[in-house]
Amino acid sequence: MSETPYSPLVVEHFGHPRNVGRFAPAADVITASAGDPEQGVRFDLSARVHGDRIVAMRFEVYGCPHCIAAGSLLSERLQGATQEQLRRWSWREASDELEFPPDKRGRLLVLEDAVHALATQWQRRQ
């Protein structure tokens, strides 16, 4: 096996990303985006909410394997999350777990922006 610059967890999520796609617009669906493909990364998040919890997450991503893995991991972690948990979500959670290289951590700040924007969108809906 030749070495790759990615951790086994990144390789796993890159090859089998969870919860990809987007929900069709609906009363219980919230969406948020951050980033720009011209800058190398963009995340589109959509979530189905029920009461004070997220019941299902979907994501789309333009970015490197680390970013695809981060979107996939996030979509798993945010199942069942509350608005407050979205607001508190920090890029460090994904960075540590996926062993993000320091020079790519800025891309996780874009994901953090998308997550916080999702919380704001949710609040506006209520």
């Binding site: 796609g21 985006s33 589109d44 994501f59 789309e60 991503v61 333009y62």
Partner: peptide, 12 residues
């Protein structure tokens, strides 16, 4: 492409 954002596909 199946999970690339529409924004990436439209911009391009």
């Amino acid at each position: 492409r199946s999970f690339s954002p529409q924004a990436a596909n439209a911009e391009k």
